[in-house]
Amino acid sequence: MPALPALEVLSLARRFGDTAAVRNLDLAVGSGEIVSLVGHSGCGKSSLLRLIAGVDTPDAGCIRIDGEEVAGPNRFVEPERRRIGFVFQDYALFPHLTVGSNIRFGLKTVPKSEAGKRVRDMLERVGLAAHADRYPHELSGGEQQRVALARALAPAPRLLLMDEPFSNLDRALREGVRRKTLSLIRQFGITAIIVSHDPEEALSSGDRVVLMQAGEIVQAGSAYDLYDRPSSPYAAEFFAACNRVPGRVRNAHVDTALGAFPAPHGLDDGDDALALIRPTGIDVVADGGDGEVMARELMGEIETIRVRLPGLAEPLTIRSTRRLPAGIRRVGVSIAPGAAMIFPVRPC
């Protein structure tokens, strides 16, 4: 990370009535970094974005962009002076302006000829050169999204904020649009925060993933960090549902119905622990075993199998590429090495 972060958020807080949308939040984003901000609906991620953009005012804390304080106890920079690009969930295209005029909207201070050139350039880069004179409602959803992006990027902002930019698109379109958007952002080399509630999208959308819950950051790191080394059961289960297997620590191992796993630091003998194992971390063995096959569901390449094991309250969910013989009733299970993620169980 470079010495001076492009964005610094310190002890930021914002309440709406009784709900704390953002509580005591710290975040630093490096220059040129793309951060994927993810969390369930209502976790405060959009509120955080609006605070950074300046369209909302924090109750406490401070925000710095390129080292300049834009919101703090004694200072508030109006959004129009922050030089931030914002792509809204509903795109917020001005319905009374053409595509070209929408993009030109933020170029008021740029000389006319230069602005025209910039608009044409942006339109070309998002592949909408032919649509400059159309109105937003004449465009498809994907095209509207690209106009919104072009409009946000045209004034060359210091920071790009995107609030659920892909959520209004068909699933089939989404993947392609997302990839193109990211490549464009990288071309510009601009620092960006992309808010999403979709785990897969979040993992593949940035250099760094920041997971929020109830106004706080739960974990931040690379996509691998978050997926493979979640810091909490919440983080683990956010990205994919897990099989929950309870156990107890003995001799530096956690004993469970599925066998013993090495206990991480901080767990002592006698402590209750919880092993979370992703459905892909377990496999089935065709013969011999005390697992009872409850249901099978072929998804294509993989098959989802529900297996009930003695000693476990809930059946295990297993996603396997191995094809079991038809009609098989009993199977064994095997856990991939390192697949079990162990968390302490805090006494209630």
């Binding site: 953009a53 300046g54 369209v55 129009e80 917020a92 909207f105 409009r151």
Partner: peptide, 12 residues
Amino acid sequence: SLDDAARTLGRS
């Protein structure tokens, strides 16, 4: 969101 968009695009 149109207000916010215009504000972030540099309009008072």
